[in-house]
Amino acid sequence: MTESNVLLEIKDLSVEYLSDGKTVHAVNGVDLCLKRGRTLGLVGETGAGKTSICRSILRILPDVGAEITSGEILMEGKDLLHLKEEEMQKIRGKNISMIFQDPMTALNPVERVGDQIAEVIELHQEQGNHEDAVRRAKEMLEIVGIPGERYYDYPHQFSGGMKQRVVIAIALACSPQLLLADEPTTALDVTIQAQVLDLIEDLQKQYETSMLLVTHDMGVVAQVCDEVAVIYAGTIVEYGTKEQIFDHPSHPYTIGLFGAIPSMSEDEMWLHPIDGMPPDPTDLPAGCPFSPRCPYASEACRKDRIQPAVTPDGHMCRCIRIEQSKKGEH
């Protein structure tokens, strides 16, 4: 892999929140790497730190009570965390944009949908006037499958799927290099979800955009992503290509996640849930964060932070059993 192929590299990112006098360890030493034109799926459950990672990249964490305590976020080699706020403003919406989870609250209810698209275009266009931005906004509406004359409508006149398409139009209006999609279809019905995923994929090809797709839906990952990172309690526990993760899931948490989904092809009386609950982020267990729920956990799992290991098929997995099984073979 050549260096120029990499668009975004996150190194050792940690994010903490202060809540009720306690420190919430939301993201704990995350490394991710996103290549040009590719899609990386970030998979995990509620509170795993997925959204905090996206917000750190855009530097839109809450001003009060949230802090990036370590790490670098390198976009084409430049550390976004060290940019001045004015420089960051030029990047937001132009080089990096975000699709938020909830289309119902992501739009301004008292502003025409078209103006909300034109706003981002006007802000970032180097030449041209307001009329050019309006024309381009109408084009964007057409691209996402909404007639241009609906530019003058308000969000409440749109269905959920249409609102999410407006959010996508805003995100893609300046042809960003990087798209952060935070559960873009979770609030939508499956037939509408299929339409929106198709749309994102088509546009991504057209503009050669890289995408970080945050989701908890393994089906969506299977359909859309090239690479997959599985996150648990703020730690990436497994990371590889889609084929590696789906064909040879190696971390007990990933295996548990796959096992808990009701099968579409087999008939089973009982599902296989993961016992217990995710850990309290203000009081994470020492060692592996999954150890309290893990059926294979031993003393060694509860001591120190687990170092990444390489599985036989060459992907990253933070589990001591990988090294142990290798030793067992020799």
Partner: peptide, 25 residues
């Protein structure tokens, strides 16, 4: 049929044929 075809499958080796619905409800 459209509803069933729209469910994202976790089977990565067989790309499912989606029935693409057009239009709004």
């Amino acid at each position: 049929r459209a509803l069933l075809s729209a469910i994202p499958s976790t089977d990565i080796h067989h790309r499912q044929e989606r029935i693409r619905l057009k239009g709004e409800i």
